[in-house]
Design a protein around this nucleic acid. Structure first.
Lengths: 361, 361
DNA sequence: ATTAGATTTGTGTACGTACACACAAATTTA
DNA sequence: TAAATTTGTGTGTACGTACACAAATCTAAT
């Protein structure tokens, strides 16, 4: 047996001929290090290509961290429920550390509610914030306040280039719109009729929905065979009127394909692809229970998985990495755009293996 | 500030009124614990729902582990190169631990070579083995030997229900064949002609290729409109003959769609979808550089991502979890079947975010 | 040359776990 | 009943890192 192999900070200390305390001061630039020692230590660090051991580090740092999450009121909406589940999952991931996530929820259709939640969150002075920036102007204002306070934040779900936070985590909406167009168009006649369907009362503020539509339309502009008729419909309040309208639309020859820009494809699919009328191809978003069921029944053709749960989970993880492990956080984390059909669906359900074992550290 | 909060093994000891040494003996059933103490400790463990801290554990145990990998000779084949890269990635993941992976490679078309590699690996008496069980009978024999030796092993890439190892990691081939069929058939005329194309000299032994074909055909059997003509072609040795044949096939009206059961779709796509002849739809496997390029040029329609690199990476991780962290290893880890088209392709390249940060603890 | 003050460096303890070892108590053997 | 053995229990050290504090060294003013 050879000498006991030192590693890490101790090995640096040995090579540089100083104590680990001095090495530690260099690694954390705490100062109080003589130029000579500094140089020797830096050389040693380079020499052994030192990589900090996050495992050991995490064992030491044991402060309490309080995070605030500014997200919509789920209010029965499964998409936002999944986001909440993501927070729970993250808390379990990090169960050996003391972190808490306080929810500051707002009404999806109310800017003032959003602003109120945001400022309440800020006022509580958490260590860090995760936020879905639903409203453009209001979010800008929020980021500004954070900047002034030096408050670290992570955005997710809705991408805003203006949000210069620690990280954004979510989908490339524009690209996902193109993918959707491709899936919808596939196998259709060149001059078929398509509808882009938005569920929203405040479309103007939901940037990512507009981006999805942009991507969708961009696909056909690029394509040489661009004689598709694309119509946009915005559903404001789900009254009984639109059901009739849609049914009529479906039975007439007015629609061949439907692109639903939100996770509510099931609302439409349950109305129109019931089997008697002409089959309309539908592409939507997200593996929500109702979407899954309708896809299994053949009423929805494709879903693009935005993975809301993982988005939320990773948002918290980003903060935790930043604070607890002091790891570098990737500033832009676009998820792969997962195409789900009736056939690969099952392989995505209850399957986190693509998340390689544990999330942390 | 309240009392310093104990946690883990210490807290158990406090509640049970014993020392941590005794708790430790219970947790690892090392014996030498009185019935009374045992009972109290078990109660305490249940009470606080103790979850071992793998982080702290990994810090302590610092043995050297030597793993053997029985995999094909890459020999320029990008698929197997990726597998090797996966091992490298795993070694980096676990760089704070002492693990090594010794390669025992065999020729893809030689059973004897496989058997030799396997027994060499076994003879080296590693701590654990990862293996792609390419040949059925020979693999069975190998598992048998492992069992007798008490040698832990992980299989990947090719699923064998008979392999009762620690874990299998890979794709559900049958299901992937169905997905492929669905993608290929989409938008095609009901009576279109399809070809299943295998690249293999020993098809009989490549179970997962047969399973892919089975899945592919099963898709059409289920479907009510099952008047497709499906032909199977096996390409043995890539001579110049088959190029001519395929070209002729392509320009004639004999083929509408092509399902390539291996990762070599590029070999065909580069021949037949060059732009002049009739366009043939192609579905293949894996994001290899050549496939990526041909997909970007529009010559390949869909790829199913089997993620060879992640398979290899997770195989090693499974062993490491088992030995180092003493975590439970999931015995069956089917990857989600990732559908890649020209449009979502970019979101899969250079993107490991779906692997949530780091692999390990 | 002495000493106060500032600067630099080293040491000790802790994090949660594993394991070797020491030692007391209980039990068996002579 | 003393000695030898077994059984049960607690203590100490280590893993790699962070940080508080003590110790050592250097600087400058007397």
């Amino acid at each position: 047996m050879s000498e006991k192999q030192l590693s890490g900070i101790k090995e640096i200390a040995r090579i540089a001929g100083v104590s680990i305390g001095t090495v530690d001061r260099v690694l954390h630039n705490r100062g109080s290090v003589s130029p000579g020692a500094l140089k020797k230590i830096q050389a040693a660090i380079a020499q052994i290509n030192y990589q900090p051991n996050f495992i050991a580090r995490s064992l030491v740092v044991n402060k309490m961290y309080r995070f605030a999450a500014i997200v919509p009121d789920a209010d029965g909406d499964e998409y936002w429920e999944q986001i909440l589940k993501g927070f729970t999952a993250a808390l379990e991931d990090w169960n050996h550390f003391s972190i808490t996530v306080d929810l500051y929820q707002f009404k999806l259709n109310s800017k003032t509610s959003f602003t109120r939640a945001a400022s309440l969150a800020l006022k509580s002075l958490p260590d860090g914030i995760v936020i879905t920036p639903q409203f453009y102007q209001e979010s800008i204002a929020f980021f500004d306040k954070c900047f002034k306070l030096g408050m670290p934040y992570v955005t997710f779900n809705t991408y805003m280039p203006e949000a210069k936070g620690l990280s954004f985590i979510g989908t490339d909406s524009h690209l996902s719109g193109m993918v959707a167009a491709d899936l919808l168009y596939m196998g259709m006649a060149p001059n078929s009729k398509m509808i882009v369907l938005h569920f929203d009362e405040e479309l103007q503020n939901s940037k990512h929905m507009l981006e999805k539509e942009d991507g969708f339309r961009a696909y056909f502009k690029k394509s040489p065979k661009n004689n598709q008729q694309i119509k946009t419909i915005v559903l404001n309040n789900p009254s009984h009127n639109y059901q009739k309208e849609l049914k009529k639309l479906a039975s007439s020859n007015e629609v061949d394909g439907l692109f639903v820009s939100t996770s509510k494809a099931y609302e439409i699919a349950s109305l129109i692809n019931t089997g008697k009328e002409k089959r309309i191809k539908i592409v939507g978003y997200d593996l929500l229970p109702k979407n899954i069921e309708l896809m299994q029944r053949g009423a929805i053709d494709f879903l693009i998985n935005q993975n809301p749960m993982q988005q939320a989970r990773m948002s918290i993880t980003a903060l935790a990495n930043y604070f607890i492990l002091k790891k570098k956080v990737i500033p832009l984390q676009f998820f792969p755009i997962e195409i789900i059909s009736r056939y690969n669906l099952s392989s995505y359900l209850n399957n986190d293996t693509h998340l390689l074992n544990e999330v942390i550290p």
